[in-house]
Design a protein around this nucleic acid. Sequence first.
DNA 1: TAGTGGTCTAGACCACAGC
DNA 2: CTGTGGTCTAGACCACTAT
Lengths: 245, 245
Amino acid sequence: MLKYNTPTPNATMNTDTPIFQRIKDHITHQIETGAWVEGDLIPSEMTLTKAFNTSRMTVNRALRELTAELILVRRQGAGTYVAAQKVQSTLVEIRNIADEITVRGHEHHAELHRLESVAATDKLAAQLDIQAGQMVYHSTMVHFENAIPIQVEERWVNPAVAPDYLTQDFNQITPNAYLMQAAPLQGMNYKLEALLPTDAIAQMLRIPTSQPCLVLQRSTRSANKVASFAIMWHAGNRYRFVGSD
Amino acid sequence: MLKYNTPTPNATMNTDTPIFQRIKDHITHQIETGAWVEGDLIPSEMTLTKAFNTSRMTVNRALRELTAELILVRRQGAGTYVAAQKVQSTLVEIRNIADEITVRGHEHHAELHRLESVAATDKLAAQLDIQAGQMVYHSTMVHFENAIPIQVEERWVNPAVAPDYLTQDFNQITPNAYLMQAAPLQGMNYKLEALLPTDAIAQMLRIPTSQPCLVLQRSTRSANKVASFAIMWHAGNRYRFVGSD
DNA sequence: TAGTGGTCTAGACCACAGC
DNA sequence: CTGTGGTCTAGACCACTAT
């Protein structure tokens, strides 16, 4: 474990905030700002007990709750670690289509059709919460399952959040996987609808323009900014979302 | 609070089970067996402390965790109660389309097109986990938002779970709302896809057959049986699923 | 063996609800 | 006022991990 300093109380924190909550806030803050990242060993219960001038049970409660929230992982005898970033939700789990295809035992590959820097249109600027005309990164990829095109992924990325986007090798890592690692995910919004494809999309998916598509639009947030906005087109006859509760 | 006896240790319980876990198990057992139901006041921390011959902090941990799991509700100064049963999920929250439309400030009404008893086809029998040929209830409804047809809901119901389905007035209560009340929901599976409508569906939604539809298929479980299977068609240009995480 | 987390105790003070 | 839950303390014993 590196990068650990005495906790600095947040100015916005009410003095009535329970101690266990202050400890939780401190830890999540370290993770959100990237000071502590996935796999890092964080301070032990005893260290935090002294740092916050409290009792071990109070620290234990904070760490136990963060573990229940899947933010930390604890190993008896070893220590407490920052958990792997996972956002789970019925609809969000399709975020890494490469993994999903591999899990099904099928072969996945992707074709990069476009990777460029473009000026944000008004509409796009609103999606990314930036100024119109500002430069943003844009990529278009097609994902294949056993050589059949399954998803067209068009993505716009906020350079302020992922400045190295254009220099990635997207044959090695999917845009989603890269963004997950480059910018710790805070949350997302999505929209799901059924649409007819444009000619360009139909061509990439190798379907007729009369074939309905399942279209997922999603924006992700990181570091209190909108990190990226993506539109994913799936041929309706080849792809569906499933889940259970 | 009624119906409370000294906890009877489960025979399958390992003697190494932590005390807080035994308390949690005891409480969830009371709820699962119906001994305690929604809204019931359960024993206080002090009562449980004595009953389990432990300390208050241990009882507090058990109750706090069950509260985080939405199984209990606590009110300082008043007591601890069994929480209302709720199933929530991005995709499951669309279960009551009438409420959803009303919340948007729009007018909702529904037309009942069909309400009948039919013999289960092989496919349907598999969905409902019953014998083919067995009688099941079937309904077809169209839901309107401000006089525009927004959803066609076709539903098959297991008579063993909701024997009074055919005698309901579905102008007063939606099938979903009735089933939620008649059969406490255990869980569900769903499938979401983009399809072209059949002629009959297109006519009910008043759309051309070339208009893609967002189709949600869902089966619900109750009392360890499949309670119902539903197919909901939405015009792709009028309806979308949205959510956030 | 030293340090870690997992659990538990027997007290304590407080805010709040209901009578 | 009494009883409830919300939080906290300063210890304790144990199982496990790493060295």
